[in-house]
Design a protein around this nucleic acid. Structure first.
Lengths: 229, 229
DNA sequence: GGACAATATGTCAGTGCCTGACATTCGGCA
DNA sequence: TGCCGAATGTCAGGCACTGACATATTGTCC
């Protein structure tokens, strides 16, 4: 993350001949750690995988692992962290004509579609992301870490919404509330997907998108008056 | 805001002459651990307080501490856990005539009022609870653990809402969505209160209730169309 | 190509959270 | 009083994580 003056300023992934050997090597070991950790977690479970194992799989010392990731959680959530960055970028790019809730909804759907169509590494990103969500929902420690990340993203989203609408988030509560509601709905969809994928197959990205949209559609009805009759 | 003073007596907590010496002793050490931990956390911070210190303050072994609490988080969140139980009880007691969102709102307000008027131990519960929220919001580890607890409560709330309205939560998404939205709004209020209490004084229970209600009031406006103009 | 500076990595020692196993003490009850 | 079971203490150990210091590798300037 330490950007040097000679580095090209790229926000996202730089597939770079511009990068020096040192930077490329770092990226490779980092990716290898994420990949190895992901595999081990899926096979053995998160709790039964030690950091030493992950480090050994990539042939680095434990100390090096902790120079790349602050803790065991971080390496597990690394893939989702990237997706979150993409979501933020999509949200910022939404036209001002959309209402806040439309912008959020479109941004998240776009993010998932993008994941489904990105054959970056050997394994498609979408598979990794979906497996990861499943892992998170079934691992208390990971779930806790993930939820904390989400609240950090909420602050970012609040800021973006406030800026879009020209509001001061300290005065007007709507951006905060909207961000919180959005997170809640999204995670509810994740939970549904996770439970569903538990019985049937994974279902792919489209089923996730469908689920998200169904949950969004229930937002109005859920808040409006009585439910029965 | 229908103030029902028909408060049900403690659901599980029997303050009892009926309890034997053994049970009373256990409760006392448990309470002492919670109290000692709370004080130490407030003075030294959560991270800089070891379990050994907490155990030593109550004059028990570290091993005994871990027989009362699964981990360091749990002792910190113990006070809030009780409050959550009260909230669930209040929610279950809400009349069927109320809409789901009204029931949730009334239940949480009642819970806070109850906290404000409960002089159980030496220190009032409300002070402890508010200090705790402040501590949680400023301690990443605690925040993560707290958020995980909240998601567990969401499942309970989902069940209660579904039962109230005679719905199957597997088919109708509204209970889930409503529970998620409620959690989001509530935590948003907590965050606001925490930031606010950082600058000014604590403000007491009424300020928290006010904040919660203001956030609820913004729920409709936030979801409805455009915000400006 | 060689020397130097910067940076990445390895090694080591140590702390703190948490757990299982086993011994010891204490409360409940005949 | 004496027994049984529950609570507690003690001990050993694993694992996550960190600071300090030594070593190796890379970029750069000559």
């Amino acid at each position: 993350m330490t950007a040097r003056l000679t580095d090209p300023v790229h926000p996202g992934a730089v597939l770079g001949p511009a990068l020096g050997l040192r930077e490329r090597k770092k990226r490779r070991t980092r990716d290898a750690l994420v990949e190895a950790a992901h595999q081990l977690f899926l096979v053995q479970g998160y709790a039964h995988t030690t950091v030493d194992e992950i480090a050994a799989a990539v042939d680095v010392s434990q100390r090096t692992f902790f120079r790349y990731f602050a803790n065991k959680d971080e390496v597990a959530l690394a893939v989702l962290a990237e997706a979150e960055d993409h979501f933020i970028a999509h949200l910022r790019a939404r036209p001002a004509a959309e209402t806040p809730i439309q912008a959020l909804r479109n941004a998240i759907v776009l993010t998932w579609r993008e994941l489904g169509a990105a054959p970056e590494g050997g394994a498609s990103t979408i598979t990794t992301a979906l497996e990861l969500i499943q892992l998170i929902e079934t691992t208390p420690t990971l779930l806790a870490a993930h939820l904390r990340r989400i609240t950090e993203q909420e602050l970012v989203v609040t800021g973006i919404l406030a800026e879009r609408e020209g509001l001061d988030p300290a005065e007007d509560l709507r951006p905060r509330v909207m961000a919180a509601v959005f997170s809640g709905v999204l995670r509810s969809a994740h939970l549904s997907w996770s439970a569903e994928a538990d019985t049937a197959g994974t279902g792919g990205p489209e089923s996730m998108i469908q689920l998200i949209e169904r949950h969004f559609d229930q937002l109005g009805p859920a808040l409006t008056g009585r439910w029965r009759g």
